[in-house]
Design a protein around this nucleic acid. Sequence first.
DNA 1: CTACTGCATTAATGTAGATTAAGAAACGTT
DNA 2: AACGTTTCTTAATCTACATTAATGCAGTAG
Lengths: 159, 159
Amino acid sequence: MKKLSVKKGEILQHSGELISKVYYVVSGLLRSYSIDPKGKEHIFMFAPEDWMIADGVTVDGPMELFIDALEDSEVIQQDKKDMGDSSHQFDKLIKRMHVLQKRIIMLMSATAIERYEYFVEVYPAITQRVPQKMIASYLGITPEALSTVKSQRLHKSDS
Amino acid sequence: MKKLSVKKGEILQHSGELISKVYYVVSGLLRSYSIDPKGKEHIFMFAPEDWMIADGVTVDGPMELFIDALEDSEVIQQDKKDMGDSSHQFDKLIKRMHVLQKRIIMLMSATAIERYEYFVEVYPAITQRVPQKMIASYLGITPEALSTVKSQRLHKSDS
DNA sequence: CTACTGCATTAATGTAGATTAAGAAACGTT
DNA sequence: AACGTTTCTTAATCTACATTAATGCAGTAG
């Protein structure tokens, strides 16, 4: 368990590494993402201050997630195996699962517009801090599609 | 913690209930699913023998998941708060998260065909045990689309 | 056996979002 | 300030999948 200062753009964890760390974000902003077989980047989560981020390493092998810094950040790095299993950690995991569940349901049932509305509602702060194309990547759509979604929203509020 | 026998079609948990149980499947097959605002059903997971299934209830409130039996089943019901936080349980959760992560990445990056291929690879047994329309619901596509995907696969293997 | 009901398949038509491309705006670097 | 680089927007075209609808096929009940 140690404190790190990372610069914007710095990579904390490469895909496929077996070392399994957990990062608590004290300040700044991290993200985790994967690169699919077609070479496209998909943002899996954003982690602003007070969040925790980790890859999904299991006993079965590594998960293909990168973690990097979108802003200069202070993070506390901890090894997963030293985390213990206090019920506090347990709760955090349960909460994270809930977010993932919701995300899956949204991907299956909601349109790009609905997913964007939900994103803005849940993470209003993030929209100001990251480029649009990353929000598009999080939503599972292209930056072009996000752009049209946003203009539709503007025109709607005229009515 | 008690053992239950449930009949095919029986509902173990309704959406919105606050009671938070975990079910270990001894034999048979359960599923969890949600119904979206448009009234469409989306299968969240299948749980054959030796799996565990639960809703996503958190401190923040209930998750909108139903759980029911697709086959006559024997299950062990346990209250979440009595689970303790042994590292065994912890590991199970981590594994589940891994599955969810993979699913999200697939939904964002893979076509219907690729998702089906992956499903068959990971859950070959399930394809024989549930109706096609439920597999479609799990994959996030319509039964019609799944039907064409399957015929494409057949024609491909001719070549 | 016939009639009903739910499921699977196939085909037509429609649509959300991808792709491609080109111009405009914002940003970092010297 | 002036440059290249990245990001954002807009529009035209394309494609994967949804929707709708018709048909065939079990399974089940009378």
